[in-house]
Simulated scan of single mutants.
Amino acid sequence: MLHTRTHGGPDAQGAPLYDFSTNSNACGPCPQALAAVQAADATRYPDASYTALRAVLADFYAVAPWRIVLAGSASEFIFRITAWARQQGARTVGLPTHAYGDYAHAAQAWGLGVAEASAQADLVWACEPSSPLGQAHSQALGDVLNRADGTVVLDSAYAPLRLSGLPTVDDVQRQQLWQLFSPNKSLGLTGVRAAFAIAPLGAEAAVQQLEALAPSWVLGAHGAALLMAWTHADTQRWLEDSLRTLVGWKQRQTDLLHAAGWTVQPSDTPFFCARPPAAWDTVSLCVALRVHGIKLRDATSFGLPGWVRLGVLPPAAQDALMQQLLYGD
């Protein structure tokens, strides 16, 4: 039986006109990254070892090249490292209270039970800033990081989109865990699937084992071009400029929702969770709005029934949403 997963973005009805359901940077696509993807040579295989790409990413993050593990997407890496952990004898997984569903999906696929306390799990997932809340990781990582065993993965997909707040994991602690990055969200190019992880110090054997679990050419030419563009100075300047724009858009969007009687949770990112007035059912609301080309992400699948997650969109999209919320047809 096909397992149905819940995600934001286009659905069976196509691409929404105003898509609040994804965490993609609404200032995108980044022109520099888009140009690199469009110029990618799709007539040839990439270098199967991705030698130049690994070197550039390693230089950008100031790590040794062996620590760069390329992945077809963040989801692909989630499933691969879960499979690897199971091979190494893992039996339990630690999950954030509210989190991206693929952590649990991968654990279930490989027969890992969910630990009551993350600090006791063989494989621990953390995400900061988190999704759907866009907040600091809700569970302290100190006890986990002080362990001599186990595998800890910090999903840093939204770290480049941080608008406020500070990380709870310092640079020294980062060297003890796996860090997962998927820049396509920050660049507004989520349709280009590409990601990479930075391995902890001393994990050479684990890196080799993870590489053995990967298919040949885990990245196509377009994904490799996206990751290469990520390291360029002009791409990073565009990202910095976009964050300033998103700060203003976010303030406007939250002000409008507050004025309409919604409860808005604080977040450090250009997405957040909000709850409509008590009389509204979020499932019915999402269905009704979708008819008008507006898509929100119901947060029930994140363990937050009665809430929705909204990405920050430009003022025109915000006005369209408020028009439907306040006046309907």
Rank of each mutant, 00 (worst) to 15 (best):
R5C: 09
P10V: 02
Q13E: 14
P16A: 07
N23C: 15
S24G: 15
C27I: 03
C30M: 07
P31T: 08
A33C: 03
Q38P: 07
Q38D: 13
A40T: 04
D41N: 04
R44S: 14
P46R: 01
A52C: 01
R54H: 05
A55I: 05
L57A: 04
A58N: 03
L70T: 08
A74H: 05
S75Y: 11
F79R: 05
F79I: 09
R80N: 10
R86Y: 10
A99R: 09
D102P: 06
H105V: 12
G111C: 06
V114T: 14
V114R: 11
E116P: 04
A121Y: 02
A121P: 02
P132Y: 00
L133D: 03
V153M: 03
S156C: 13
P160C: 06
L161T: 01
P167W: 09
S182G: 11
R193P: 10
A195E: 00
P200I: 06
L201K: 06
E204C: 07
V207P: 01
V207Q: 04
Q208F: 08
P215C: 13
P215E: 13
L227N: 03
M228Y: 09
H232L: 15
A233F: 13
R237W: 13
D241F: 10
L246I: 06
L246K: 03
R252I: 11
R252C: 12
A259T: 04
A259S: 07
A260S: 00
F271C: 07
C273A: 12
A278Q: 15
A279T: 15
D281C: 14
A288V: 07
F302G: 00
G303T: 04
W307H: 07
W307Y: 12
V312P: 00
L313M: 11
L313E: 05
A317P: 02
L321V: 01
Q323V: 08
L325K: 10
L326M: 12
